[in-house]
Amino acid sequence: MKRRIADLHPFTVLCLAVLTVSVATAASRWWLNCAVIVLCLAVGAVAGKSRKLAALSGAIMLPTLLSLLMIHGLASQETSAVIAVWGPILLTLGGVEIAMALALRTAVLVVAGLLCGLLIDKHQLVAAIDLSPAPPQAGYLLASTLFLLPQMMEKQHAIGEAQALRKAGTGRGLAGWLQRLRLRAVPLVLSSVQDAHDRSVHLAARGFPARGEHSRLRQVADSQIQRGVRWVALLCSVLVPVAILLPLGGAS
């Protein structure tokens, strides 16, 4: 099962996520949202990513939930039953219901989106974009960013260590923080822009971006069935929400 999930084409995973999020958002039923979240966690568990998925989702959803409770629970303009009173602040039942409904709606997007990020192999995604009709620059930009990020993190860490060794930027307070930011950011930005400039000369000399057919070392497994699933998923992610929402529009 784990192997089957890993073998899915990156675009298939993305299309299924779009379908899931759009249908769950349009339907706006708490039990459906909960079912989608549980299903995503189950798929994550099968793929061996459940802990990471739960931790990342929690890190995003906890502040979101608190914020929604503040906006709708405490500062509600609903005239519903009051749960608690703290001076001028009222916690209303209607406000809490709205906050929970919005949090569940957002949670579906967060959990499904993070699951996509965890399931999709970044190298496969870059290869799939390269093989798609998207502009050739898109694949380069994605690949380059994903592989530059750890390098630049390392460079930033090394710059920080070097500045600490020469006892630069050790001040306290806001001034010290600004000095540390300057001492890290300036060498990092200057060296990175210089590297990018050098790279552009070499790439331009090699005729980048290459157009037309070119050989690739990495192949992305795909099938007729997966292509069909992608089309159906995209079509349904438009048609199903319309079918759900049209009767509501007529009724209002």
């Binding site: 898109a138 930009l141 380059s144 930033q156 930005v189 990175s192 990018a196 552009s200 331009a204 980048f208």
Partner: peptide
């Protein structure tokens, strides 16, 4: 999609650096 094919190589190589800088 409208702007990507128009960008010169110097801008294309600078963009990944900028994206990494945004995150770091």
């Amino acid at each position: 999609l409208a702007v990507l094919p128009d960008l010169p190589v110097s801008a294309l190589t600078l963009i990944p650096v900028a994206l990494a800088l945004n995150i770091i």
